[in-house]
Design a protein around this nucleic acid. Structure first.
Lengths: 157, 157
DNA sequence: TTTGATATGTCAATTTATTGATATAAAATT
DNA sequence: AATTTTATATCAATAAATTGACATATCAAA
């Protein structure tokens, strides 16, 4: 039988329950308010995540395979294909043949995609600043490190 | 100009970027692996969240209005209606007239919904335990308290 | 009592997200 | 050379998720 310091102290199950419910709420708000905040660009949080993955220093020139994008973003191939189709239709990304592997195609930002991503930075920065108002720098570091471990745990389930 | 202790230390923007990307990944994994884990019951994480809200001590008998559910779960009315329709079709929840407000309808678990929720508890507990393997008790408390604040920040954006 | 606010529902359009099955082409292995 | 694995794509079905517009019933207030 689990021992607790007092009756009012939550059990391990209750703590877990609160944790995942908060995660659920944050997830809903991130997509809802994040997409609304990006309204000027008409980009959803999903598209934002894909652009962000492709805009990273070493990826920006070479691009990234669909397989690596799936693993990085942690979503399904069928879903990512649809998102990439929409991004390609807007001329923000392009799929080019991988010179090192004929099966693979590299996804990368177009020049238009690069410009759009750069233009988004101010809005993203403002969104971050507003959403993180209740947390100071040390707490933000603490939170992302804890989320790191939670992600690993969720990934192994 | 921001002062940093060393060149390798991440800027405030980079910390925020990591934080929201981890949240994005955790969100994807929660829904993907959570729904898969609940496969035996055929319940998605959304349905799970609704059932959990309705199964809370003071709500279980009286039920809860759609309005309050929307605020609690932080999703849109149109979306919640569709989820409730599916849950009602499975005879897990029912909508009854609020005796105190003729405009309002109270959503509550059916007896079948109550049985299903109780039967789910073991699976939920196992899911929590597996996903939280990398975090000890104190870290779990720390994480849910930080997520609490992040939710408030995200809500005000 | 009329007027306005509230609670819910519905319809439409679009995007996201999953699993499962199937197909094709290229690489790697036997 | 034949087989297997890998990378991607596609089609289908289903569930979720948003905004916007509109409808209806009820409550509350002027």
């Amino acid at each position: 039988m689990p021992r607790r310091k007092s009756m009012s102290e939550p059990s391990g199950f209750e703590i877990a329950n609160r944790l995942f419910f908060r995660l659920y709420q944050c997830s809903n708000l991130l997509h809802k308010n994040g997409t609304r905040y990006m309204g000027d660009f008409g980009a959803t949080t999903q598209q934002w995540a894909v652009l962000g993955a492709l805009a990273r220093p070493l990826v920006r020139e070479k691009g990234m395979s669909v397989k690596d994008l799936i693993e990085f973003l942690m979503l399904s191939r069928q879903n990512l294909t649809a998102v990439l189709d929409r991004l390609e239709a807007r001329d923000w990304v392009e799929r080019v043949k991988d010179p090192e592997d004929g099966r693979s195609r590299l996804v990368r930002l177009t020049s238009e995609g690069n410009r759009t991503w750069d233009a988004m930075q101010g809005t993203i920065e403002a969104f971050y600043a507003q959403a993180l108002t209740p947390l100071n720098d040390a707490e933000q570091v603490q939170l992302y490190q804890l989320l790191d471990r939670l992600r690993d745990g969720l990934n192994d389930v």
